[in-house]
Design a protein around this nucleic acid. Structure first.
Length: 436
RNA sequence: GCGACCAUAGCUCAGCUGGUUAGAGCAUCAGAUUGUGGAUCUGAGGGUCGCGGGUUCGAAUCCCGUUGGUCGCCCCA
């Protein structure tokens, strides 16, 4: 007997698990729609070059890629951003601005498995194209927060760390660092949270010792946790670019505060999101307890559409992954356990009663009521047990006596009350009973 | 790519320093029970002890390898 295992890192969704997954998708979809986002989808398989162009050749290590029978180098998509940029880039001339799109899709990465990370996963992606101002960030951060709150999560559960690559560059420039040095510092900043002072070693081997005063100023910005202290740190610089950027910060935080979302957002310049394609504000969502990896991440990427060969188009986007998010919902007891329950369970006396019940069974199902019945002849006792275990609200009993009278009994399985109903009135009776 | 730990029934696990035919609970199915319930009782099915090799009179148990899982590191788009 051959034994086939699921491929490493891949997941099967048995009915209970799929019900939970569907719950996530449904709430995400509803939330995105209320924010005026439109849903799209795209191929799972893309040209390998799409990712090489975006992320560099080393990305191939992390991809499920192969050569197809036509000799094309292809890859299962590891993320949605390049794809959505391609879609938007193709039609940019005709799309009304702002372009607000979302998707819920599966992605594949050839990686080692860890808690909250597998080789296949789903992401809720949302992007705004064609908007250079912080209104786009406002819209997306608000959507991100709501996409988590819609499950019952609140301020004690998660928060958004807000950072800004532009502010970092302007700040470092004001401190006298050229761009290569500034980039190296950002690399160190990204690692500082994890490895501390060691993070600066690479900078120092490349550019020589980092002045103590300078390092102090960098660590000062890293430790900022509020808008007020951010302003206080920046004011003495008297730098026009920095002050302009601080103005943007105040407007963005002001917008979110006016929406009542200020409590979710923390100033935290420690978030740089790698050396990715981000060009401005970047943000990540974390659980407050700090037990899980990032729930979501996003930011502005104004150059990517152009980099893929289309006209420049400013963009902001984020993605929420399903794995870490599901872990958080479970931790907080917010993952509903679905009972796959019918509305009505038919209890059938015998073959004659079964035939008598089938017209109503089909009529009820056709009218959208979910009806279950035993496929094999069963004792009444067994049928009632099955009806109860199914989770149905009502049982309809087709016994010999009732059918002879042209009726069936409608039994409320919670209250255990029964009434006899003419077969012709059954559909209407059940409809109104289920509404109650 | 690197490291640690783990692998016995569908699930959770027991199985002593190696010793007859590998067990329990839960779950499933059946019977008690052909006109009224989530209970109870009885019974059944379900295992190449992840796989392969080695040591031994004898291996679920010890050793090596391998596959898979969990959790870290690297990476995280």
């Amino acid at each position: 007997m051959p034994t086939f295992q699921t491929l490493p890192g891949f997941r099967e969704f048995y009915p209970d698990a799929l019900a939970q997954r569907n719950h996530l998708f449904k709430v995400w979809r509803q939330t995105a729609v209320t924010f005026g986002f439109q849903e799209y989808d795209a191929p799972v398989l893309e040209p390998l070059d799409l990712y090489r162009t975006k992320s560099g050749p080393e990305i191939e290590q992390q991809l499920f890629s192969f050569t197809d029978k036509g000799g094309r180098e292809v890859a299962l998509r590891p993320e949605m951003t390049p794809t959505v940029c391609r879609l938007v880039g193709e039609q940019a001339a005709t799309l009304k601005r702002p372009i607000k799109w979302f998707s819920i899709a599966e992605f594949y990465r050839y990686e080692r498995m860890q808690k909250g990370r597998g080789r296949c996963f789903f992401q809720f992606n949302a992007d705004v194209f064609g908007e250079t101002g912080i209104e786009a960030e406002t819209e997306l951060i608000a959507l991100l927060i709501q996409a988590l709150c819609a499950f019952g999560l609140a301020e004690p559960d998660f928060y958004i760390r807000l950072s800004d690559r532009n502010l970092w560059f302007y700040y470092l420039e004001a401190l006298g660092l050229d761009e290569p040095r500034a980039r190296a510092i950002l690399g160190a900043v990204d690692k500082f949270e994890k490895i501390g002072d060691k993070a600066f070693e690479e900078y120092q081997t490349q550019f020589g010792a980092l002045e103590a005063v300078l390092k102090e100023r960098i660590l000062a910005l890293l430790s900022i946790k509020s808008m007020a202290s951010l302003e206080a740190l920046m004011a003495p610089l008297h730098n026009e670019k920095v002050q302009g950027r601080i103005g943007e910060w105040k407007r963005l935080i002001g917008n979110l505060t006016a929406m009542g979302l200020g409590g979710f957002v923390e100033v935290d310049l420690g978030v740089v999101r790698g050396l990715a394609y981000y060009t401005g504000f970047v943000f990540e969502a974390f659980d407050r307890k700090g037990e899980l990896r990032a729930l979501a991440g996003g930011g502005r990427y104004d150059n990517l559409v152009g980099k893929l060969g289309y006209s420049e188009l400013p963009a902001v986007g984020f993605a929420i992954g399903d794995m870490t998010f599901a872990l958080l919902l479970e931790q907080r007891g917010l993952m509903p356990s679905y009972v796959n329950a019918p509305d009505v369970y038919f209890v059938l006396g015998g073959e004659a009663e079964r035939m008598a019940a089938f017209p109503a069974l089909q009529a009820l199902r056709a009218s959208g009521i979910r009806v279950e019945y035993p496929m094999r002849p069963l004792a009444f006792g067994k049928q009632f047990k099955a009806a109860t275990e199914s989770g149905a609200r009502f049982a309809v009993i087709y016994g010999q006596d009732e059918v002879a009278r042209g009726t069936a009994k409608l039994r409320d399985l919670q209250s255990r009350e029964e009434r006899e109903i003419g077969l012709g009135d059954l559909v209407d009776a059940l409809r109104s009973a289920l509404r109650a």
